[in-house]
Every structure is written in structure tokens, then in C-alpha cells.
Design a protein around this nucleic acid. Structure first.
Lengths: 118, 118
DNA sequence: TTATCATATGAACAATCATTCATACGATTG
DNA sequence: CAATCGTATGAATGATTGTTCATATGATAA
């Protein structure tokens, strides 16, 4: 599609640039997954849970108690976080302990926090 | 509140740990802002826009054409991104060029992409 | 001034999503 | 076995939010 040629060549981007810009875009699928990943950090409850797990593993009911949020709500969110591999868990008897899956979680949140400090 | 003492001391977290974990949590306000920031990255259209702006500034109609999305939709999203200081703009005649506000945007997205490559 | 181009914006609608409620499952204890 | 504890889950609801549509604003050109 002749993007630039439809309009003023001197203001809008030239056609060969348009091609380049477009070809630099990741695949639709990748972009979708990226947005989906960031959505996980876009909820206060989930951010709180992740922060709690920064230093140590915690069981469901402790997370719920510490945050003052329903066990059910926490459990739903833990499921979401686990399905997206941000956290992992291990079972000890009746208790299930959750912890961060990898360091990217810390890094991503840290970068976000840094952006806000300006 | 006596968190741990209500339950089995040997499985659930001890009270002084609970205090420590809680005190390590950022302020409610900060957590809210963090979630709000990540929400911005949690939408495919906004991620696409940001990616387009990685290398160069672009005007509204070019972004819309390149992405195949309505000018109105793009304009709404640009407003959101700008209100949250992820992008900035400059006006040249009728045209408004948008560009990334700082490097955190690139870093945050890069970290997210890295997490997905596993 | 009038026409046109580029962008912005308000309202409405549709879709997404987090929480609640009730209940079920799994494991331990008595 | 029954009772209890910790966790998980499905359905429903309320709230949030991205897009569309119509229209307005701002700037340039004729």
C-alpha cells in the first residue's frame, strides 16, 4: 500500500520508511503475548502479591491475611499468575507455597518503579 | 494483628516475619500507580504504537495507517499514553508528531519480551 | 472567508475482567 | 470414618475500558 504518496511527501513519512517501520514490528502474535504479560502487572492485587513474594515464598492464606483480601480472590489471581509462569508453587500437606518463577518479575517491576520516580 | 499465632506456627509464617513482609510493601498509593503504569503496556494497540515510536517520531495519521486502526482510536490511545508521560509530542502546522518520552519504555518492553523468550 | 486536512474529544456500546458467593476438592487429624 | 483446615473453582455481578460514531477544534491553503 502506498502510504506516503497519498499525502504530502514533505511532512508525512516516506514510503520506503513506512515499509521499514512496518517490518520492524514484531509479529502480531508476539505483540499480543506481550500485552497479555503486562496485563498481569496491571492489577493492584497481583502487584501486591508479587511484591510479597519478592523475598520469600508464602502460602495462600498468609497472602490473603497480609493483604486483607479474600482467600478466594487471592486464589483466583494466583492461578492467573501461575498460568502465565510468573510464579510457581509447591505443596506441603494442606498448604501450598507460592514463589516467584524467575527474576524477570523483579526486573520488570523495578523498571516500572524507576519510571515513576521522576 | 496476630497473624501467625492464629494458626500452626510450624507451617505458616511467624508473626515477626509477617510484620517485616508487610513493612517491605510499598505504599498503597505507589502500588496503585505501578499497576496503572503497567496497564498502559497491557493493550495491543498501545504496545504497537510504542513499538512504532521506538526508532522515530510519527504523526497520528501515519500511525493509524501503518497499524490499520482508526484515527480516532489512535488519538484516544495517544492521549492516554501522553497523560502518563510515556510519549511526548510536537506540533508542525496541522500535523502532530509523537515520540517516546524516555528510555524506560524501551527497557520495560524489552524485559517483557525477554521473559516471553523462554 | 470558505474549504480542507490533521487531530482531538464526548457519549454510547460492547467486551473484558476482578471480586464475591457458594461449594468442591485434597490432605490431615482425631 | 467424620471433622476440619487450606486451597481451588464455577457462575454471577459490577466495574473498567477500548472502540466506534459523530462532531468539534486548530491550522493551512485557495
Amino acid at each position: 500500500m502506498e502510504v506516503a504518496e497519498k499525502r504530502n511527501e514533505y511532512i508525512h513519512i516516506k514510503n520506503h520508511i513506512a515499509q521499514e517501520v512496518k517490518s520492524n514490528l514484531p509479529l502480531e502474535d508476539t505483540l499480543y503475548n506481550l500485552a497479555d504479560l503486562f496485563k498481569l502487572f496491571g492489577d493492584t492485587t497481583r502487584i501486591k502479591i508479587l511484591y510479597l513474594l519478592f523475598d520469600r515464598e508464602l502460602c495462600v492464606c498468609d497472602i490473603a491475611t497480609l493483604l486483607g483480601i479474600t482467600q478466594s480472590a487471592i486464589s483466583h489471581q494466583l492461578k492467573t499468575l501461575k498460568a502465565n509462569k510468573l510464579i510457581k508453587c509447591r505443596r506441603v500437606g494442606k498448604t501450598v507455597f507460592y514463589s516467584l518463577a524467575d527474576d524477570h518479575v523483579r526486573t520488570i517491576i523495578a523498571q516500572g518503579a524507576e519510571h515513576l520516580e521522576e
